[in-house]
Each structure stands twice: as structure tokens, then as C-alpha cells.
Amino acid sequence: MNSSPAPLPAAPSTPGAPADSARRSRRKDARPGELLDAALDLFVEKGFAATRVEEVAARAGVSKGTLFLYFPSKLELFKAVVRHNIAGRFDEWREEMRDFDGSSCELLRHCFTVWWQRIGATKASGITKLILSEAGNFPELAQFYRQEVIAVGQELIRNILQRGMASGEFRAIDLDYAIYLVIAPMIFLMTWRHSIGMCVPDALGLTPEEFIAVQVDNLLLGLCTRPVPAPTSYCTP
């Protein structure tokens, strides 16, 4: 799965203004990324409701007015953070899954491991905990996340399971429910990391990589129509 984030919003233009210096142009082009990084930090640290756009602008080193040139509201800023860090990557991930040469068992292991490396172990995983905590108070935010992250992610998982069924590796199972067998360990790790794990880092007493490996083994033993080959290493994709 390619780890490139989604494209940044275009820098606002100033009609009729003289040409800026190369340094100023580079600074202007960098601002959307700086704002998104600052917003991700604050949304994960404080939540959606408690984060103020003034704080985001200050952390990015710009004025609130500059922030609003790129993002007209806090909700639109949050949407841009989600698209840049998660939703905007789905097309590339879908293409990589489509080109995967190994078995469906190997693909499932690979996707779990890569998901942890590129999302779960990063600050972006805190977005999931934020949604779980605040969705009830912000239905538009919840609907956006369901449409652009949850629904698309579920479809990718469905495709992996369908691939395994079509090849005869996986037994027939109700996909509407089976996708949650894959999602549940991911949600557990993300919510733990951004709740108890923040205060007591070693409280779980397990490494995320080993946890994922055991979960995948358990999942495959339930899905597969024949014994599952042991991986060479739990921590190697």
C-alpha cells in the first residue's frame, strides 16, 4: 500500500499582485500542509469540540485569516485532515491490493501489518478515537467519516474476503458481518493507543505487531478451508 498522503489544497491566488520571491512562494505552498499537520495534532490532543481554529493557526505560525483562505470552517479543516491522512489514500491502496500476487491469506496479513505501520502507529489513528467520542454531538462529522472512511475501508476488506472465497482459500461466510472480524482488532489498538495507552504506555503488556499477528492467525483459522501456513516472522509483512 502506497503511503503517500492525499494532495494538499491549492494555495489561494492573489490577482494582480506582483510576483513573489522564491522564498515567499515556497512558504505559501507549504502553508496547507503546515495547517493540516497542526490541525491533526490538536484534534488528536484535544478533540474536535475543544480545538479552536485560532490554536491551529498559531501552531502553524499563521493568522486565523490565512487559515480561512484555505479552509472556510473548522469542519472543512477536519475533513481536509481526514482526506489528507486517510481517505485520500484509498485509491492507491485499492490498486496495490488489486496487483498483489500472493495468496489471500498473505494479502490479509500484509494489509494488517501495513495498516499498522502507516495509520495505526501514527498520530492519524487518533482520528478514529475522536469520531467514537464525539460523533453523537457532530452528526455531520460522523456522516462524512462514515462515507469517506468507514464505507470505503469496509469495501476494501470485503474485496479481500471475496478474493479468498473465490480462490477456495476461505469458506463461505456472511460478508456483511465478516468484515467486522477484520476491523475489530484495528479499532481496539487505535482506541487503546489514544486512551489508556497514552497515560500508561506499557499497560497492555504486548507489542502491537505481535497482537496483530495473533489476531490474524486466529482470524485465518476461522476463515480458511485448510490449515494456514505459519508466517516466517510475525513482525515482517
Results as ranks from 00 to 15, higher is better:
Leu189Gln: 05
Ser195Gly: 10
Pro139Ile: 01
Thr191Trp: 11
Gln162Pro: 02
Asp202Trp: 02
Thr207Met: 06
Leu181Met: 14
Ala166Trp: 03
Leu220Ala: 00
Met190Cys: 09
Ile187Tyr: 15
Arg163Ala: 01
Gln215Ser: 14
Asp176Ser: 09
Tyr177Glu: 06
Tyr180Met: 02
Tyr177Leu: 15
Ile160Phe: 09
Gln147His: 14
Ile212Thr: 13
Leu156Ser: 12
Leu161Cys: 04
Arg146Gln: 10
Gly168Trp: 15
Cys224Thr: 01
Arg146Asn: 12
Met198Gly: 12
Ala213Leu: 00
Ile179Gly: 10
Leu223Thr: 07
Arg226Gln: 12
Tyr145Pro: 00
Leu156Ala: 11
Leu204Val: 07
Val214Arg: 09
Glu148Lys: 02
Glu169Ile: 05
Phe144Trp: 08
Met165Ser: 01
Arg171Leu: 05
Met190Asn: 12
Arg158Thr: 07
Arg158Val: 05
Leu141Ile: 07
Gly164Gln: 01
Thr225Glu: 11
Glu210Arg: 06
Leu204Met: 14
Pro139Gln: 07
Ile187Gly: 10
Ile196Leu: 15
Glu148Ala: 00
Pro229Met: 08
Asp202Thr: 12
Glu148Met: 00
Phe211Ala: 05
Leu206Trp: 09
His194Asp: 13
Arg193Tyr: 02
Val200Phe: 08
Ile196Phe: 14
Ile157Asp: 06
Asp174Glu: 14
Phe144Asp: 09
Leu156Thr: 10
Val214Gly: 12
Asn137Ser: 14
Gln162Ala: 11
Ile157Pro: 01
Pro227Val: 02
Ile187Met: 10
Gly153His: 06
Ala178Cys: 11
His194Ser: 15
Ile150Leu: 14
Val149Glu: 04
Gly197Val: 06
